Amino acid sequence: MGVDFGLPHFDAELEELGLLAQTAGLEPVARLTCKRRAPDAALFVGSGKADEIKLLAQQVGAVEVLFDQALSPAQQRNLERFLGLPVNDRTLLILEIFAQRARSHEGKLQVELAKLQYLSTRLVRRWSHLERQSGGIGMRGGPGETQIELDRRMIGESIKRTKERLVKVKRQRSTQRRQRQRRETFTISLVGYTNAGKSTLFNALVKARTYAADQLFATLDTTTRQLYLGDGAGSGRSVSLSDTVGFIRDLPHGLVDAFEATLQEAVDADLLLHVVDAANPSFPEQIAEVQRVLHEIGAGDIPQILVFNKLDAIDPEKRPLVSVDSYELDGDQVPRVFLSARSGDGLEHLRGLLSERALVAMTPGPDAESRGDDANWAQ
């Protein structure tokens, strides 16, 4: 179910929500959209549209209703009572996918924290079978409220413990980054919208075997490998390449906060390879969403190269005439390269751009001796 509030990124076909549902192991059986000026405070969609959803769910035999937008705890609870079915929103769907896909200790901790933070605002729905009793002298609430308070305290303690464990993981990553900096390593991070082909490009560049698939959020955990660019790429200095989690529209803020340690790889990178699905007609909106998240995590000013991937999926008559040009990004012209990570077509152009960037970064400038502390650091 999707509600059009007049925003430019509204998915009228609910294609992305359907892909998210399939990635989570669900099978979409019907799709419904409507237009509203603002969300209904009680049911998000209003009683008339709620009746339509209920009737459609009965006709197609649906066992769950998914919304493409985030629902408040009250709206979710009211909809479940009205429809007689479980109701979940885009936020929980993404969290469930992350929970299924996380493999590393860090990734599991981050997902656990995000889910705990999400559920902490929805505890009242978990105990609807317990009556809130009142009456009698000194009676203020009943077993339902007691259970809710107990559960809230337990979740609060779990959130605190998980945050403490994540701090330790973040400290370990920080140590690893400092070691790379002492070795004067030029660092490159792959970023981009989910399913843009980052992991496929990562494998093609470093000959790794990172899991890659044509699905949303195929990779959640950061993977770093050494990338060889040729003898001209630097004087004995190594280049590291990191594959990071993909971004998506309306990424839950809890996940952005929880994945701060993972996304720190992008924040500390010398260069970002912004991978774009060139065959997706919505790529401008996807680029804008990635830029928004990058600015949110403090990586908006890091130099970028735009990699327009999936060239093989574009009709031959629509393919670009040149392999390398420039693209306006946040008011600046940045290099853009067209390629297919799957077939390898155009990879040599990307390697050439990376070699140029690495060589410039690794070569001290002519005025290095006059830069004081900076010159001492370079030595």
Score class of each variant (00 low, 15 high):
residue 217 F to P: 08
residue 290 V to T: 15
residue 245 V to R: 04
residue 224 T to L: 04
residue 256 V to A: 03
residue 270 D to T: 03
residue 242 S to I: 12
residue 287 I to V: 15
residue 242 S to F: 11
residue 288 A to Y: 01
residue 273 L to W: 08
residue 282 S to P: 00
residue 242 S to Q: 09
residue 224 T to P: 04
residue 244 T to C: 04
residue 287 I to G: 05
residue 234 G to D: 14
residue 270 D to G: 10
residue 259 F to G: 02
residue 244 T to P: 05
residue 222 T to M: 04
residue 263 L to N: 02
residue 227 L to M: 12
residue 239 V to K: 07
residue 254 G to I: 01
residue 249 R to D: 00
residue 232 G to L: 09
residue 246 G to M: 00
residue 234 G to I: 09
residue 221 D to H: 12
residue 215 Q to E: 06
residue 263 L to T: 07
residue 220 L to S: 03
residue 274 H to D: 05
residue 219 T to W: 01
residue 273 L to F: 08
residue 252 P to N: 08
residue 217 F to W: 12
residue 215 Q to H: 00
residue 272 L to C: 05
residue 253 H to G: 05
residue 294 L to T: 08
residue 233 A to H: 10
residue 246 G to Q: 01
residue 264 Q to T: 12
residue 292 R to E: 12
residue 250 D to Y: 04
residue 233 A to E: 05
residue 229 L to A: 10
residue 212 A to L: 12
residue 242 S to H: 10
residue 260 E to V: 03
residue 254 G to Y: 04
residue 255 L to W: 05
residue 241 L to H: 11
residue 289 E to D: 13
residue 259 F to Y: 07
residue 238 S to T: 13
residue 235 S to L: 15
residue 292 R to Y: 14
residue 278 A to V: 00
residue 294 L to N: 04
residue 282 S to R: 13
residue 273 L to G: 06
residue 268 D to E: 15
residue 273 L to P: 07
residue 253 H to L: 13
residue 266 A to R: 01
residue 249 R to V: 01
residue 223 T to W: 00
residue 294 L to G: 04
residue 271 L to G: 11
residue 222 T to W: 03
residue 236 G to P: 09
residue 243 D to M: 07
residue 297 I to A: 02
residue 283 F to D: 05
residue 267 V to I: 12
residue 249 R to F: 01
residue 285 E to C: 01
residue 215 Q to M: 10
residue 229 L to T: 12
residue 234 G to A: 15
residue 285 E to N: 08
residue 284 P to G: 11
residue 292 R to Q: 12
residue 254 G to K: 03
residue 297 I to C: 07
residue 291 Q to M: 13
residue 239 V to T: 15
residue 216 L to N: 01
residue 256 V to M: 03
residue 283 F to V: 00
residue 213 A to F: 02
residue 287 I to L: 13
residue 255 L to H: 08
residue 276 V to G: 09
residue 246 G to P: 06
residue 236 G to N: 10
residue 231 D to S: 14
residue 249 R to Q: 15
residue 270 D to S: 09
residue 240 S to Q: 13
residue 291 Q to H: 11
residue 283 F to N: 05
residue 222 T to D: 05
residue 232 G to R: 11
residue 237 R to K: 14
residue 288 A to F: 02
residue 251 L to V: 02
residue 272 L to T: 02
residue 238 S to H: 09
